[in-house]
Design a protein around this nucleic acid. Sequence first.
DNA 1: CACGTTCTGTACCGAGCGGTATAGTCGAGG
DNA 2: CCTCGACTATACCGCTCGGTACAGAACGTG
Lengths: 207, 207
Amino acid sequence: MSTETPTPGRPRAFDEQTVLDRAAEVFWRQGYEGASLSSLTKAMGINRPSLYAAFGSKEELFKRAFDRYHETNLANARAALEQPTAYAAIEVFLRASADNLTAGGHPAGCLSIQGGLACSPENARISEILAAGRAATEAALEERLSRAAKEGDLPDGMDSRALARFVMALSEGHAVHAAAGASREDLQASVDVAMRAVAALRPGAGG
Amino acid sequence: MSTETPTPGRPRAFDEQTVLDRAAEVFWRQGYEGASLSSLTKAMGINRPSLYAAFGSKEELFKRAFDRYHETNLANARAALEQPTAYAAIEVFLRASADNLTAGGHPAGCLSIQGGLACSPENARISEILAAGRAATEAALEERLSRAAKEGDLPDGMDSRALARFVMALSEGHAVHAAAGASREDLQASVDVAMRAVAALRPGAGG
DNA sequence: CACGTTCTGTACCGAGCGGTATAGTCGAGG
DNA sequence: CCTCGACTATACCGCTCGGTACAGAACGTG
């Protein structure tokens, strides 16, 4: 990142990253199709032509905003997975996820799901982009658990892909709950149950 | 239900339940806000004024369609829960759910989630209606598991509300996966993992 | 301080939205 | 068989949608 690009002409009155975060919040709260240009520009604090000059279209704006959101989320997930055992990695992943889903400073739940699970045919790309983001997170999980399997840190015959899918699905379900108003404690209690159950998957346990 | 209501005037050219099912499919595939009146009437095979005469508004149409969908789903869930043990009830619930989420004859996934997790403020009621539907299913689960707890069919100290939330969240996550194209086998493999883990919650096990 | 360039703000575009007025159609009762 | 009443079909309503033309404002450069 160069600190100072020599731009001719009038400089921008807004910070691109800042307005992208504001846009992400609107998409998050209202979904892609529920987020009108008016509500977006209002929340971003810029006018329509500025938005189009900077981002090109509503869809491109969404992609940019989601990319930013997703990179952060994926980094958080990878960080959570840096635990010495598969059990600990799963627990930290689920607990951090539950915290994030109900944290202040942004809407409840998860943009990857609220953004637009189902869209009209002309916006089908949006659903695909979100699905690809979720798949990337699941792939990171699987990678970690696959390593655990090689290290003997999972029971023999354990399908690490299926285990990753199980953990990811639980986290997505928590996102659905969070979007409907579930509290941090609600979700953590569900994680308690999950971990009590997942303990059976430790290599030592009689799984 | 009276079999024959003596209606004066011209009789309807469509069956109400049939067109409600068609409408549900469109909402399911495209979400409430992504489902336009044009796509709805086209799929339902009726004209706009017929739709409005019969159902009043797009929102009322959605409520009627969703009620029908939800009643069936809830009945299926209750039937699945009629198993002698909590473990079996959870397994049948999750397996039937995974089957339904990927069954032919209707869109993949679950209307309760795809219909509109996040909507624009003027359609916020839609999200609430869907959330209430999901909560009803979770309540049925909890009721069954709470009974199991009383029967000594769950480990002491097991929080049946949290367990119900855990099972429901997993099922919702499977719905998200199904909406993105996961296969029946993908979901059943996740259920395999879940059941292997949940076995630890059997009263006999050292949970 | 005039210039070229880029941004900002207003005002607007065609299209599609959810919803409806109106006229014609069809079946039942007198 | 005629009339009444609810249904169907066309054509339309005001409104908001995503997107843009254009004029003015603000910066770096000569």
